[in-house]
């Protein structure tokens, strides 16, 4: 069985970068797959990798991560402006971040319009969950 935990942006928006990352990693270490509204900042994504490496042990083998984000090149000016204002007022809630434990998630493949999440079902890595992203 695979457990997904939804993390709304409101749960992390007031947290410091370090606390955001710790919160996400703690959920993943419980063998759950995080579906987070929005995305981390670029520097936070690098920090997430750094902290994941610090936490690696024989039990925790790391993470699989994928961020789906609207392609700004495909947006018209009005959509871009709305996105910028929304980000300034409400934080970067656009898109979605998926983080799973490497012991459960074999790989996440991302094409521009869809995500395919391959789980390690009974250790053979054949399970597949598909999510389509609307942009």
């Amino acid at each position: 069985m695979v457990t997904f935990q939804f993390v709304p942006y409101s749960d992390i928006e007031t947290l410091s970068s370090a606390k955001r990352i710790t919160k996400l990693i703690n959920i993943v270490k419980e063998n759950k797959i995080v579906i987070m509204e929005g995305r981390l900042r670029r520097e936070e994504e690098a920090d997430l990798i750094e902290i994941t490496m610090e936490e690696i042990s024989p039990k925790f083998k790391g993470i699989e991560i994928s961020v789906v984000y609207p392609d700004r090149n495909k947006q018209n000016l009005s959509q871009k402006m709305k996105g910028v204002f929304a980000s300034v007022l409400l934080g970067d809630r656009q898109g979605m971040t998926i983080i799973g434990p490497a012991s459960v998630v074999k790989k996440i493949e991302q094409n521009p319009d869809k995500i395919e999440l391959f789980t390690k079902e009974n250790g053979n890595g054949n399970g597949k969950t598909r999510t389509r992203n609307r942009k």
């Binding site: 610090e54 024989p58 083998k61 490497a102």
Partner: peptide, 28 residues
């Protein structure tokens, strides 16, 4: 740069357990 490092991957490449764990630790 990677988001996961599993010492068992190195075991499968023919390393012994100590070598594999050391390599994983150094890799992180």
């Amino acid at each position: 740069i990677a988001t996961k490092i599993d010492y068992e991957d190195f075991l499968r490449k023919g390393m012994n357990k100590k070598e594999a764990k050391d390599r994983a630790k150094e890799a992180t």
